[in-house]
């Protein structure tokens, strides 16, 4: 990973996810910004696009599907990875059909997400 660091956005209103993921993902030198509010995150995205967006599917105000749609409308090349809770396979399927790069189900280890991110970055750089 001696190429340009990736810009990764993490969105989750449970805050625990962002809080734990941020340091874990930063370990490999990538730039990570965590958000608890969908709107704030989208506003930030409007300023400057990110390579990868990791978002929870179920959030109070805006759900992950909407985030996905709005991100992709702004930046086609951004890879959106959806975090799903337990037994939300249906929604995950919907997300994939709407262009999400992949999904990961809780509980997971940051290293599991790391693998998906690496796959995404491979596609970004190809």
């Amino acid at each position: 990973m001696n190429e340009q660091p990736l810009k990764i956005m993490v969105i989750d209103d449970e805050n625990i996810v962002g809080k734990r993921l941020k340091p874990a993902l930063e370990k490999t030198g990538d730039i990570v910004e965590a958000f608890e509010e969908g709107e704030t995150a989208l506003a930030r995205f409007a300023q400057e696009p990110f390579d990868i967006v990791v978002t929870d599917i179920r959030m109070e105000k805006i759900d992950g599907i909407e985030i996905l749609e709005r991100i992709l409308a702004k930046s086609q090349r951004t890879k959106v990875i959806i975090i799903t809770g337990y037994a939300t396979v249906e929604i995950a399927r919907e997300a994939l059909s709407k262009g999400a790069f992949d999904f990961i189900a809780k509980p997971f280890k940051p290293s599991d997400l790391r693998q998906i991110i690496e796959r995404a970055s491979k596609e970004l750089r190809s």
Binding site: V89, E90, A92, R93, L96, I104, A105, F108, D112
Partner: peptide, 9 residues
């Protein structure tokens, strides 16, 4: 055990 499926459903 925990390898995730590529597709489910």
């Amino acid at each position: 055990k925990d390898t995730l499926p590529v597709i489910e459903g």
